[in-house]
Design a protein around this nucleic acid. Sequence first.
DNA 1: ATGGTAGAAGGTCTA
Length: 275
Amino acid sequence: MVVAPHFLFKNLIMLVISSWNINSIRIRLELVSRWLDIRHPDVILFQEIKCQTDEFPYTFFLNKGYESIVLGQKARNGVAIIIKKKFFKKEDKRINNHINFNDQSRFLCYYISLLDIYICNVYVPNGNPVIDADKYNYKIEFYSKLKRFLKSFIDKEKKIIIGGDFNVIENTKDVKNFKLWENDALGKLNIRKLFREIVSLGYSNICRFFYEPGEKYSFWDYQKMSWEQNNGLLIDHFLTSPIILDKVLNFGIDTEMRGLNKPSDHVPIWLNLNI
DNA sequence: ATGGTAGAAGGTCTA
């Protein structure tokens, strides 16, 4: 029996999912506005919003057509998931906040029932200086909790996309001179192993299907002329469960956002999804 | 080896 293609594909939706460590949402609204007009994302994962939950610019995003789910805190960290109104339902729930501890808002997972997809926003602790056992161990603990949390989605064959700032140099080519980073909390073997242990649960690191290591970065330090010399790091990633992987059409990094006025030190990453 | 920048603070801390 022959089935017409238009019948096969009539229910497909093309989604743009993006993630951006914004380094303060409130001073970045003009930049975000310009980027929304270019990328037209359906879902945005923001990290480092650097404001309390009730200080988030909800109205700005409502006027742009988005609902906001926010977990903020005073001065630092803070994560938010922004969703186009047509995919938002009030009854949808946050899944688990057990990864947040010591009052650091770095994790937000939300189930979008209309798409049957879990969206998981992650801001992994930096972990430096390594000599400070508290900070480094906190990062290890965060990764361990994340791994535990993400295992069940593989076991239950759920559709999940995890995006964010993982603060890890996964591949030695994700930075120009890895030697300078191998004792840093981003380059330490233990941390790189923890990231790969999560991937090994069954997740796919989407950027690896579209770029060879070394071709792209997602972060450039404000200091030492890092942007001008293209001394960046690739530390922002998307992971997906197996049943999402074959629906991913494209992945990209909006590098040009780093060169505009008052940029974040990170740029947006995004993927296209047929669902 | 040191300090360089940026943001939220309104003193330093984090990155």
